[in-house]
Design a protein around this nucleic acid. Sequence first.
DNA 1: ACAAATATAATAGTATTACTATCAAGATAG
DNA 2: CTATCTTGATAGTAATACTATTATATTTGT
Lengths: 230, 230
Amino acid sequence: MIISFDMEYLFKSLKIVIQEGVFKKDPETTDLGKRIVGQGILMIDEMGFECFTFKKLGEQIGSNESSIYRYFENKHMFLLYLASWYWSWIEYRLVLHTHTIEDPEDKLRKALEILSGDVMEDKSFSHINETALHRVIISEYSKSYLTKEVDEENEEGYFSVYKRLVLRLRDMIEKLNPKYAFSLCLASTVLEGTLHQQFLRDHFPTITNCNKKVPAKDFFIDMVFNCLKK
Amino acid sequence: MIISFDMEYLFKSLKIVIQEGVFKKDPETTDLGKRIVGQGILMIDEMGFECFTFKKLGEQIGSNESSIYRYFENKHMFLLYLASWYWSWIEYRLVLHTHTIEDPEDKLRKALEILSGDVMEDKSFSHINETALHRVIISEYSKSYLTKEVDEENEEGYFSVYKRLVLRLRDMIEKLNPKYAFSLCLASTVLEGTLHQQFLRDHFPTITNCNKKVPAKDFFIDMVFNCLKK
DNA sequence: ACAAATATAATAGTATTACTATCAAGATAG
DNA sequence: CTATCTTGATAGTAATACTATTATATTTGT
């Protein structure tokens, strides 16, 4: 899909809204907040989530640790924020690119293309480097829910965007084959699996067929349509 | 499969061998080492990997922090040790239960049953509580490779057991359908996916079909055989 | 234009983590 | 029965993950 001028303006006039409670103060409302998010993504991408600290981020952006704490309770909440932002962005792109498609098969195929992360327009949504964020999500997203606090945080709604995405995919799957018994499993496996295959491609190439020439979408499209054959 | 007396003895006389370098001193060689591993698993299961520390473990087993450091460099290496142990144990069970099966379809089905974690014999392999370890792997395994050091540690061979398991599954897949183009993707997706579906069943039941009545193996067997249909 | 409110920066301080180093006591092996 | 090896106890360090306080700068409402 070619991004038109019109769409560029649409991008710029839209704001991704993040669930209350993930942040203490909305970073989108100030310049400092935007720098925290924008540079935070770049730092996690470079040094990994474990080595990343608010102190280092403060130095990087010429600000103070304590100022960052006014926006986010801790770095775990910061990761939840980034994840919500990322999945909202994916959801937005998913809807944008599929809502006009009538044929359920075409629609699902398009959805899988977007979710599998191979297509990545280089249009920057405000202050966020989506390519860096995408890498961060591949390497760090699982850590946002593999915690002892997952049930409470789930109740707070911190994973609702991600769950909604799974349900959207489930709906598309069921549209194509209402009798298929594992639509939720398949949808959640695809969403998790796409991140995983991208990680394997970069770090464990001996246990995946994905590489520069074989995009992950080839596998997932093949898999999903095989499962839905009547 | 019913575990015979003979097999119980087999279990007890076998030792799972872990790759050099993961530990500083082999914990299987001493009583203290076994307590570290045995209780460490229970503690991580209870409090999660993030809250787990060697100091707490030392208190728990009536020993000293510094003594534990003589066995493992840090808690990350401890997790790598547990993961190697777990996947070796799975590999052992996989081979044990499938090597006599001639028919490729039956063999693969049996393999998927074992890997999907629904069948869990309650035979304890020495000092390790496999049920607790299984829960630990579901919640913590990803953290062992989602790090910035993954490439170096992969070169050291710390993930070789897991990769070998994927390749075993790939072989079974290719036996059944040599023309299937994504045997590695499918194998690695199954291994990762089974852990993920078990996690979803326990924490995000709205995005999986798996539950007490519907075991994960149903989905994965259906999925794999759909993919391999000619 | 000015007072009041708000945002940020700077500093200090605390409890915990993730170790390392040293030394002494007990067990064990040659 | 001495030499070595293992463990336990203590101390210490640098970093982390915060919280609290205060001063300064900026914005805003009238």
